[in-house]
Design a protein around this nucleic acid. Structure first.
Lengths: 232, 232
DNA sequence: ACCTGAACACCGTTCAAGT
DNA sequence: ACCTGAACACCGTTCAAGT
């Protein structure tokens, strides 16, 4: 007969890998704010302290979860040119990160790089070097790519949906157009024409991401062709 | 005679402004993780529940604190060209954010824009429009600027200092150079030559920030001159 | 009507007592 | 030696009892 703690859980022995994967699943399903050591232990049918056999603390759990997610990124392509190779790898990272939205803020708060993170970075650096970028230019270009190497942009436009009440929405619209006229003017000017959104909101994320990625890659290519050198 | 709760605190009546400024001071001095409703109340010589008269909850406290910080950004300059105006305003934002390092992650987690945030965005949009950017191009260019409009880049290189022990450092160095040879190659190639740092770490943040900002501004200018249009 | 102490429902992590 | 219940030192927020 099964014990209560085993209901709904296969009673495999706990391992670091099982802890990390359960953490990812919990964050995927209920969001990162729902991920606590206690809730994760409960999900695994285990006493909270049992987790500390496999991760030193919650920070190390998050480190490991990032590693699991980053490992899902497709292996680097053997592409003809550096631009296609980098572009595809970044968009591949983006597809993974879109499946695990909680990973974005977690990656941003990591203080050390995990092996999988270094693997991803190393493969990008290799692409630039193979494409004829100097070590120095590659260094700066990697900084410029920044968190975009994970396929996300920090969204700075407010994303709250407009209020339901038409009168209130109208009042808000009037306030925005009078106090921030320039924002109001460009709000609807994105690819997706959603007039009901006052500020941003209805923007096409994928379009904006690729727009900026291509702008950066164009800039990189120009510097490469110019044989860019520091303090020149 | 003073009550214990008044020692070290001027007994002014509590106000939303005083709560927000105390929050900023606490976060400046002890970091964002030290900011709790209870600790903030203690600092103000007040019972925790007294704060809820002035902010609905902790999220609204953080919203207000961001507003206080963003209001410290210098007013927009009347510059001859859009490029100088945008550049100066972004670097001004950067100076403010460097004084309040906790504000970076907090800005990133806000879901709605405060008036001061919209003021900053509106002034940037106005600069692009005055510089001859179409509403549509300005929209995409603002997305491309992203969180860089606050003067920060998401740092993706691990920043942990190398271990003290020379033998351990040597072992780590050897592991990195063999497993991630391309990263090792570009690690020391930044402006600041700090050979003791294996991966990044010793990079010149200000240089990298301006490098990428100028790369983006160059790209914006090129699109403007080409009279960029969507799906062309 | 206003203010606030105690309580509720949580946290991450330590530690000593049990097997 | 291993495992774990209870405890510690916190959280944000609710609520009812006090003035």
């Amino acid at each position: 007969m099964m014990e209560a703690s085993q209901v709904g859980t296969t009673r495999r022995p706990l391992s670091r890998d099982r802890v990390l994967r359960a953490g990812v699943a919990l964050a995927d399903e209920e969001g990162i704010e729902a991920l606590s050591m206690r809730r994760l232990a409960q999900r695994l049918g285990v006493v909270p302290m049992a987790l500390y056999k496999h991760v030193a603390n919650k920070e190390e759990l998050l480190d490991g979860m990032v590693d699991v997610v980053v490992s899902e990124i497709d292996p680097p392509l053997e592409a003809a040119d550096w631009r296609a190779a980098v572009r595809e790898r970044v968009l591949s990272a983006r597809r993974v990160l879109l499946r695990h939205p909680w990973a974005r803020p977690v990656i941003e708060t990591r203080t050390g790089a995990s092996p999988a993170v270094l693997d991803h970075m190393d493969s990008l650096v290799a692409m630039f070097r193979a494409g004829g970028f100097s070590a120095e230019l590659t260094h700066h270009v990697m900084h410029a790519l920044g968190s975009r190497m994970w396929g996300f942009t920090q969204e700075v436009f407010p994303s709250a949906p407009p209020p339901e009440d038409p009168a209130l929405r109208e009042a808000m619209f009037r306030q925005v157009t009078s106090r921030w006229p320039h924002i109001a003017e460009i709000a609807g000017a994105g690819a997706a024409h959603r007039a009901d959104y006052v500020v941003g909101g209805g923007c096409d994320d994928q379009f904006e991401f690729e727009f900026t990625l291509d702008l950066l890659l164009d800039g990189f290519e120009r510097l490469r062709q110019q044989d860019w050198r520091p303090r020149a």
